[in-house]
Write a protein that binds this DNA or RNA. Structure first.
Lengths: 147, 147
DNA sequence: ACCTAAAGTTAAGCCCGCTTAACTAAAAAG
DNA sequence: CTTTTTAGTTAAGCGGGCTTAACTTTAGGT
């Protein structure tokens, strides 16, 4: 019989492992490209939102709008972001990823998946089947929790 | 039949979800405690290794031994780390977490587990059993990969 | 014993992220 | 139409993380 405590423990361990691994790999990759973590987190935010303003970035990253503006400025100069005026509100700016920026983010995501493929090689065919079924369940549950 | 491509896809999605969900909360929590990401990563390394030298930290974090030494210094002054001489090699230092440091790390890990329990509530008893078994497999595989 | 290599430390200095403060311009409120 | 609020920019300055360089002390090889 599997109780909630057992599964909670194994799930926690797994989340801890993956988070630890992926954050480290990501940090190294970002650094090797010459970018800082704040810059990268900002790019990630734009990646997930597709488009957002300076205020959104400052709230999301817990920094002032001044800091967000300055960081965006550097990333625009580096060709990773594009900043245009919002046609509906001429005070606001629309920040989006440039092709170069999108490429960077997608490669960094791929980077943290290299570990995933190494992990899969550790599994037998039978284990793969079990793991796959469980992951489908988890992914479904996660999307439910996200509303 | 479950092939490697299928499982890779579901595992990638899962890792993507968990990483994305937890990264921001983690960063915010660390910041709210007044610590920097480099400091936190260093503490994490010590937490996982239980005990390690300055050289290990510098290699692991891709910084010079000088930088590692200085960061450790600050964390010792803050009461989060303890630094003692290695009895087998008097050049080397053994860096370990103080009770206060361990507490900090464990609380930060707990911080990103809040949604894990919500997730488990989504599962039926049967699903819990399957997920638990799969997670045991994955955790085992992960520990093998990390040596 | 000698000499080189290895583990850390210290100091000086650079860069960068962030903040505060003062500002411009546009939208909303009255 | 005036006032206030909102979005963003700019400049000055602080603090922290990191590097290089010079140094001390201990281990290990010959």
């Amino acid at each position: 019989m599997t109780d909630s405590l057992q599964i909670s423990k194994s799930l926690r361990q797994w989340v801890e492992t993956t988070t630890h691994r992926t954050m480290r790999d990501q940090a190294r990759y970002i650094k090797s490209l010459g970018f800082s973590m704040p810059q990268f987190f900002l790019l990630m935010r734009v990646y997930y939102k597709k488009q957002c303003g300076i205020s959104d970035l400052s709230e999301h990253m817990d920094i002032t709008t001044a800091a967000a503006s300055q960081t965006v400025d550097k990333l625009v100069l580096n060709g990773l972001l594009e900043r245009t005026e919002d046609p509906n509100d001429r005070r606001a700016k629309q920040v989006t990823l440039s092709p170069k920026g999108r490429d960077l983010i997608e490669k960094s995501i791929a980077e943290r998946f290299r570990w995933v493929d190494v992990l899969i090689k550790e599994l037998s065919a039978e284990e793969k089947a079990k793991v796959h079924e469980a992951l489908e369940i988890l992914n479904e549950a996660a999307s439910n929790v996200d509303k």
